[in-house]
Nucleic acid binder design. Structure first.
Lengths: 138, 138
DNA sequence: GCTGAAAGCATCTCGAC
DNA sequence: GTCGAGATGCTTTCAGC
């Protein structure tokens, strides 16, 4: 059932046909999934290239002072160019995924990140994206 | 306008109120954005933890034979645990984002990746995700 | 490219199984 | 947890500007 909600903006009546359930049953199930948080929301998938943010990069960060409290996520939350923030195992402490308009903006962003979170950065620029946001097979 | 489509499954009538345009104008604009590919589609955001895939990792890959043709994306496309595939600048050639149910599955997946694409892998396990899929500020 | 109205459907609620 | 029917409201198309 969750597999079918991946089609995003599909009418509940079509969902009902696909699943063989009645329309109201589908409706209630989706409502329940939203309340339980299994479905966190619905979004439009935008083409970042066409929307003015053609440059994607991964930024790994490591605290310059390992003794300092690790509140990097809050310190970086205001930087809207950061699309995702993952705490990771390994040499670095976080991996950020960022979207910017140009190399210049990337440079500015890295300075902001270093200043805001007191970290060293290691940046990996994305050249192309064969695919992204593919739905996991359940 | 694209900012408002981020709310995903919103009625066109509500969009029209927000934008001050008429309902049909909104309708036409969205259709145009979809045809131009600016809006690639609509999806439900699922909670991967609650959907049986609580373990996320980044896998960087590097060809074992640098002379071989680089067709890793096609060779890996059938592995549905791979959510995204980015070609990147730097020491490694691709970064994959994968979702699996358990460490065991991750181990199996890495073997499959190495065998399918003839590559060496470097894996970074995600411990937690303060945020993800945030909408870029336009 | 925007508007407004009309026709067709989907959504959502409710009572019942 | 599922179903069916009814009121409400949204989507979609079309002619006109």
């Amino acid at each position: 059932m969750a597999l079918l909600a991946d089609d995003g903006r599909m009418s509940f009546t079509d969902l009902a046909k696909e699943t063989g359930l009645s329309v109201s049953a589908v409706h209630q199930r989706v409502r329940r999934l939203q309340k339980r948080g299994v479905i966190k929301g619905f979004t439009a998938q935008l083409d970042h290239g066409q929307v003015g943010l053609p440059l994607t990069a991964f930024v790994s960060i490591k605290p310059t002072d390992p003794a300092a409290p690790d509140d990097a996520p809050e310190r970086l939350a205001h930087l809207t160019a950061i699309e995702a923030c993952h705490s990771v195992a390994g040499d670095e402490s976080y991996i950020l995924k960022v979207r910017v308009a140009s190399p210049n903006e990337l440079e500015e962003l890295l300075q902001l990140i270093r200043a805001a979170a007191n970290v060293a950065t290691r940046t990996t620029v994305v050249l192309s994206t064969p695919w992204e946001g593919r739905r996991p097979r359940l």
